[in-house]
Design a protein around this nucleic acid. Structure first.
Lengths: 177, 177
DNA sequence: GTTTACACGTGATCC
DNA sequence: TGGATCACGTGTAAA
């Protein structure tokens, strides 16, 4: 049938049209394979999903044990650009709001861009969550330096008077750098 | 050539493999068309790019004229879920930090989740930028109500003593709801 | 019986 | 001449 022939042609055009559209959304020229293109698409979707969930879903309830976590979880590619590394730092300890200025100073000195900063206190304990972006070149050092800085910040911390403990969740954002 | 036949088969398998992978990343069953699937992928990539840039790129420098903007710019689909509407509210006016508690109260009453809240003051003027997510069902009403609330907040604002103007950029985040 | 989507093999084209 | 990719028309099976 002649109808069948053209129907199939329209189907191909439909699919290729979407593929061309995807080519414009990703860092790639118009001559990349279909397979390679789709591979990049898979990677990009994963990255973007991870990135948004990373910024959106923050665990803010303080735990009972002191902890510092700095984990790199996503890469922020801008079409054609070099890419920043996004990572999340969580600091959980006794409530010491006097440490905040030092924390800000650390972020400033590392040239980290704060995407989101959140602080929650509960029962005299506090959790700070920072989502920051670093230039890709110095990202590795930045992560380690940040981790060490947070560590020394905790060590400097003196035991808090437990009688000052309040109940109820007090949630607030911290100053940006 | 028999080699050609199998090479082409491998190519098809490679492409279809990526397509199957994409099916697992999107809200769709294993039986959706290639064309429809790719259409969804295009849409999803656009959404995610917009969503991250929306949270990341915030215009924080206060302008000289009072302004309120509430614009819906992205939809946050979670696989299988219903989807939240993400929108950005910008409020630029004279420096009135006493209005912040009211602002928080507004966000609370609307059951809006604050993804990012930032406040910058410069030369006695201030700009507040809120990135919030609303349940899809009530998103439209929430947007309008938020807009009206911000409007009345500005109207309630009394002219500030201009002698209190400071120079220099003081950037800080506001309390979360 | 018509439509729709898919896999297949083949010829063309480009390093 | 090969190897890789693509568009094309056809056969087939499900809706």
């Amino acid at each position: 049938m002649n109808n069948h022939k053209e129907a199939e042609k329209r189907r191909r055009e439909r699919i290729n049209s979407h593929l061309d559209h995807l080519r414009t959304l990703l860092p790639c020229n118009s001559k990349t394979d279909k397979a390679s293109l789709l591979a990049k698409v898979v990677q990009r979707v994963k990255e973007l999903k991870q990135q948004t969930s990373q910024i959106t879903d923050l665990e803010t309830v303080p735990s009972e044990t002191d902890e510092i976590t700095v984990l790199s979880t996503g890469t922020d590619y801008e079409a054609g650009g070099e890419g920043r590394l996004i990572f999340k730092a969580s600091l959980c300890c006794e409530d010491r709001s006097d440490l905040i200025p030092d924390l800000i100073e650390i972020l400033n000195s590392l040239h980290l861009k704060t995407l989101k900063a959140e602080m929650a206190t509960l029962g005299g304990r506090t959790r700070n969550v920072l989502v920051v972006a670093a230039d890709k070149e110095h990202s590795i050092e930045s992560i380690h330096f940040l981790q060490n800085s947070l560590k020394s910040l905790l060590d400097r911390s003196t035991p808090t008077d437990r009688s000052k403990r309040r109940r109820g969740l007090d949630r607030r954002l911290m100053p940006l750098t």
